[in-house]
Design a binder for these strands. Sequence first.
DNA 1: AGAATCAGTGAACATGTGTTCACCCAAGTC
DNA 2: GACTTGGGTGAACACATGTTCACTGATTCT
Lengths: 208, 208
Amino acid sequence: MSEAVSARQLQKERTRGALLDAALELSSEQGFAQTSLRQVAKRAGVVPAAFYRHFASMDELGLALVERCFGTLRTMIRDASRDPEVFLQIIDAAAQILIEAVKQNKADFAFVARERVGGSEAVRRAIGHELDLFVSELAVVLARLPNIENWSADDVQMVSRLFVRNMVANAEEVVEMPAGRPDLEEKIREGARRQMRLIVLGFKDWRS
Amino acid sequence: MSEAVSARQLQKERTRGALLDAALELSSEQGFAQTSLRQVAKRAGVVPAAFYRHFASMDELGLALVERCFGTLRTMIRDASRDPEVFLQIIDAAAQILIEAVKQNKADFAFVARERVGGSEAVRRAIGHELDLFVSELAVVLARLPNIENWSADDVQMVSRLFVRNMVANAEEVVEMPAGRPDLEEKIREGARRQMRLIVLGFKDWRS
DNA sequence: AGAATCAGTGAACATGTGTTCACCCAAGTC
DNA sequence: GACTTGGGTGAACACATGTTCACTGATTCT
């Protein structure tokens, strides 16, 4: 971001990143709430007391993690929704993108999926809020679809939630999926595709 | 269940129940994984060592809890699917029943919703398995619906998953819902109703 | 009535936890 | 080149945790 980075700032940012990485890693192994400050510090190669130079508590670290994860996810969705080709065959693309994105950013997705319900109060609220933003963002995209153009705002929001929910659920499945099982992956993708197709089928007959 | 219960067996069963209740209560406050053996014992009014007379570990207690919760849920769904009136107007009923059931068995649903993804490996697997059974059970019911009669088994399973997922998601929302907000409750119910209606709309045009 | 059973007790243990403090020494400032 | 700043150190603390053990005393069996 900024240009003039002193060697000190750089080093600080580096260990801050190491702490975040360590926390994300440990979270994927045992859940964020079960992850202790000392474990994070140890894996980041730093003494426990040093943790406090960067975060006041594990909760604060958790919020920073949520922010970082959703930053990644958001830019991914933005890029995808700008691509006209994606927009045309939205369903097949969505199913494919979802799987690929989750596989590539497994740690981020796993963190969001797990801590969305299981985590600490603060982390849970932050994720809920981010997901709500997500639903609204997707709603804007969906409103441009042929059969939806003249739906009420409420209805568009509703269908957007339906989609996001299923995306989250599918992401959870990919996260839980053991590595090196292309057959399972194909099954999840096909299931996601068909579910989305079924939902879209209802669009043209919908009346609020 | 069995008849000849000695005073000892009865007392043992009672404290076992107290341990399960205590664990469920604590789980709804802070999550199962954050709940310690000592906390459970204390709230059950028993010394920590006594815990081991009933369960070998917290994991075992967790599995027993999963079993108990799904027992409740399963009989509820069975009763509902036997009622012909429910079957006719399945959507409105489902939305209504879901909310009521969750409100009445909030602790059970909350446990399942939270620990489904956040819990320990063993608990997570157990819940996943129970949910799979659930999907198959619902699929049998759905297969009798007018527009679905001649779908492939795979497709029926798919739509069943779509429904169960949304039920779980809606249950999560009711669980998170602060008490004494009938407006929010109405909003969730209406959202659930519309989502299900939209899905059902696609049924008649579906081709695998 | 006497012996055996066994759910529950209370103390002890080793270990992991969050948090604090005085201290160090390289990077920055004057 | 001396002075200040501040990220990182290592030791110490008070406390919560899982697990063990010999024990007690009411219930059950013979």
